[in-house]
Structure formats: C-alpha cells, structure tokens
Amino acid sequence: MDGLEQKFLQFSWKLHPDNFVNTDEREREISLQRSSRLNDAYRVLRDPVARVEYLLELEGMRKEGEHKQQAPPELLEEVFELNESLDELREAKSAGANLDTLAAKLRAAEKNFGEKLHEVDAEMKTAAQQWDAALDANASESDREAILQRLNELLNRRSYIRNLVAGVEKELQGATC
C-alpha cells in the first residue's frame, strides 16, 4: 500500500458519514462535505494525469477551458497523413466501397499513436518526479517554472493525441458495424 492510499484510508476512518449517523444534522452535513472533498482529492491525486492537471492549475499555469489544440510540431506529418486516411475512409463509407484496406491502415495508425500516448505518459511521469525532487531540493523558481512548462507541454500533447485516437476509434467502429 502506498503512502497516498494509506493517508486516504486513515482520513476515511475519521470522516466517513457512517461515523456520524447518530449525531445532529450539522455534524452530519460537515461529515458529508469533508468526506466528499477527501474522496474528490484522492480521485485526482491517484490519477497521474489528473494530478498533473491539478498541479498546473494550482500553480496558475492552466486555466479551466484553456486547452491548446494545435498539433505538436514533431507530429505534424503523421497527423496530416492520418487525417487524409480518415477523409478517405469517410468518402469510401458514403460511396459504399470496400473499407478493409483503409481500416487496416487506420488501425496501424491508431496503434502507432497509442504507443506515442504511452511515451508521453512515461515522460510525464519522469517530469512529475523531477518536480517532486525540485521541491524537496528547494530548487530555484526558474528551475521549477521550467518543469511546469514541460509538464504543461506534455499535457497538451497528451490530450491532442488522445483526441486523435478517440476520433480514429469512432470512425473505425462505424466501419465495422
């Protein structure tokens, strides 16, 4: 059991509404508010992506609804190709043509971007560890700023790739049924 889970369970013993069934309404209400906040916090902190999002929000790096959606430069070529294949698939679908070759091509692309997603996750994990280390080492503000920038970039790249994969999945589902 990791430290986060242990803390979560410890607080749960104290705050859970089960402990307050026989108390007055005010205490029951407070227990409900606090235990829901505890659960919300655990939900965010144990998910590596949500955790980074929360950190960036906390540090003022990311505001709600502000998501960069341009393609990361190093992916431009592949994204261009993918979009072309997606267009072809849509056309082929409306023309009632055979979809097998196109679908296979898209599946390969989906797999490729899926792997890229794993890479981003790994990079994000490393950057997050760097952040923890920087905090522990009392690193300078500019060093910390640089890590946050990096995390922000990774998060943007991640959400971009994820949307791509989801889009391909959706088109492929339509192609098979």
Partner: peptide
C-alpha cells in the same frame, strides 16, 4: 463525477 468514484463525491 466519473463512474466508480468513491462516495460521497462532489463536483
């Protein structure tokens, strides 16, 4: 609030 969130949960 996503499914399988521990309850009580809030947003």
């Amino acid at each position: 609030i996503p499914r399988n969130s521990t309850i009580p949960a809030s947003a």
